[in-house]
């Protein structure tokens, strides 16, 4: 038996197997990448909630401050000497 005919030529099934393996790997790896991808939208949604809550709390704080100022004006603290013992 001797070398003859098509020696070492590339075969279509070689390409087919290679593409199939690469594609399988690519789809698997791409699906794994999703944990870093598109997080911006989720984070932004979360950030919006937090910002909304912060502004609500700030509004409440300023409201309380105003009420405190009014109360302070209405009723001055009683001097120490006038306090009943």
């Amino acid at each position: 038996m001797r070398y003859r005919g098509q020696i070492g030529e590339l075969k279509p099934w070689g390409f087919a197997i290679s593409i199939a393996l690469c594609l399988a790997f690519a789809l698997f790896a791409y699906s794994r990448f999703s944990f870093v991808m598109e997080p911006r939208i989720e984070v932004k949604a979360g950030e919006n909630d937090v910002l909304k809550r912060v502004s609500e709390l700030e509004a409440q704080v300023s409201d309380l401050k105003t009420q405190l100022a009014v109360l302070k004006k209405e009723k001055q603290p009683v001097p120490e000497s006038k306090r009943k013992k």
Binding site: L10, G14, I17, S18, I19, L21, C22, L23, F25, A26
Partner: peptide, 14 residues
Amino acid sequence: SIFIYGFTGAVCTA
């Protein structure tokens, strides 16, 4: 052959 098959597979996949 291994290199050509693999490289072609990777390029086609991309």
